[in-house]
C-alpha cells in the first residue's frame, strides 16, 4: 500500500468512518520502488491530500516531520508544461513523490483507534474484509 493510498483509507466499520483519523500502521515493513517522477501529477494531487493525516502517517512510519501546513505552490509558469517550477518547489515535489508514490507498506497492519479492529497487510495488499460480528 502506497502512502498516497493510505491517505484515502479508513476503517471499514461504518460507525468508525466519522472518526478522524481512525487507522494507524503497526509493525509496518516498508519497501521503496523507484517510479517515474511527474511534478505535474503531484501538483494536481496535492490539493486532495489530507495533510494532517499524511503528517501522522509519516510520523508513525518514522519519516522526518513534514511541514506544519500543506505547502502552497505558485502557479506554473507559461511554457513549463511538466510543472517543474522553481528549484525549491522541485525539491519539495521530489520529496513528496518519494514519500507518497515510491514508498509502500509491504506488510504489517492497520489498526482502528475507534473499534480496535486490525486489518492485515501482506505482500503489499491490505485486507479490509470484516468479521461478521463487526458488520
Amino acid at each position: 500500500m502506497k502512502l498516497l493510498t493510505a491517505n484515502f483509507i479508513t476503517c471499514s466499520v461504518k460507525s468508525c468512518q466519522s472518526v478522524t483519523p481512525a487507522l494507524s500502521f503497526r509493525d509496518a515493513e516498508l519497501a521503496r520502488e523507484e517510479i517515474d517522477f511527474s511534478p505535474l501529477f503531484l501538483r494536481n494531487i496535492l490539493p486532495r491530500i489530507d495533510w494532517p493525516l499524511l503528517q501522522r502517517t509519516a510520523k508513525e512510519l518514522g519519516f522526518p516531520a513534514l511541514p506544519e501546513t500543506k505547502p502552497e505552490l505558485s502557479p506554473i509558469a507559461e511554457g513549463d508544461e511538466e510543472g517543474v517550477g522553481s528549484e525549491e518547489e522541485q525539491k519539495l515535489l521530489k520529496e513528496l513523490h518519494s514519500l507518497l508514490l515510491e514508498t509502500s507498506v509491504q506488510s504489517g497492519k492497520l489498526v482502528c483507534a475507534n473499534c480496535g479492529h486490525e486489518y492485515p497487510i501482506s505482500q503489499g495488499i491490505a485486507n479490509f474484509l470484516l468479521p461478521n460480528h463487526l458488520v
Binding site: 493510498t5 486489518y119 495488499i125
Partner: peptide, 15 residues
C-alpha cells in the same frame, strides 16, 4: 496498481 481486498458493502474509505 493500488488494489486491495474489500467488500463493496463495507468500503474502507472516508465518506
Amino acid at each position: 496498481h493500488e488494489a486491495h481486498v474489500a467488500d463493496a458493502l463495507d468500503l474502507p474509505h472516508p465518506p
